[in-house]
């Protein structure tokens, strides 16, 4: 496939992904518009607590509808068939991003349970070892950074700023 052809294919797959995002946002916005309309108004003011959100979601819904129509008109039919494989390639190339978000999710969930020092030490050690070149020097740096930013930062906040990071349950 020519370079231009590949670029067009990438653009089309990107536009399909955006079309999906418009659809998801539209569904959320319609739901929140309806939710805002159920908020009771107050007799103390002309606008109630739901008026501003209704205004925002109303405009957002109109914009999303126009974006969806624009995308549908722009995309050729054959583009949809290739989307799944293009998305697979995109995700495969960004595997480290998924590793990062997975580790971040586990870290944030573990913080209130095991406490800041232990959770941070493990998070830093695992993520850096995953990313780093596999050398002895890198391993020593990883260990050093993990200790400084887990135990060191915890001490600094507790002793100097009187701010206590999560201590675990």
């Amino acid at each position: 496939m020519s370079h231009d052809g590949q670029a067009d294919r990438k653009t089309e797959s990107g536009e399909i992904a955006r079309l999906l995002s418009y659809a998801v946002l539209l569904a959320v916005s319609v739901g929140l518009f309806w939710e805002a309309s159920t908020i009771p108004t107050s007799r103390f003011e002309v606008l109630g607590a739901g008026a501003f959100p209704m205004l925002v979601h109303g405009v957002l819904i109109l914009l999303l509808l126009s974006a969806i129509i624009g995308s549908l008109r722009q995309l050729p039919r054959h583009a949809y068939a290739r989307f799944a494989s293009d998305f697979g390639d995109w995700a495969k190339a960004r595997r480290l991003v998924f590793v990062l978000f997975l580790c971040l999710g586990l870290y944030l969930s573990a913080l209130p349970i095991v406490g800041y020092p232990a959770a941070t030490f493990v998070f830093l050690a695992v993520l850096q070892l995953w990313f780093a070149p596999k050398t002895k020097t890198a391993a020593i740096i990883v260990l050093f950074l993990a200790i400084v930013f887990s135990l060191g930062l915890n001490w600094l906040f507790a002793e100097v700023f009187n701010v206590f990071l999560p201590r675990g349950s």
């Binding site: 990062l100 993520l127 850096q128 990313f131 890198a138 930062l153």
Partner: peptide
Amino acid sequence: PKWAMVPVVLVCCVVGAFA
């Protein structure tokens, strides 16, 4: 290098958001 910086700054962001 990025492999050292990215996780450390992530931790700083988490501490900043909590504090």
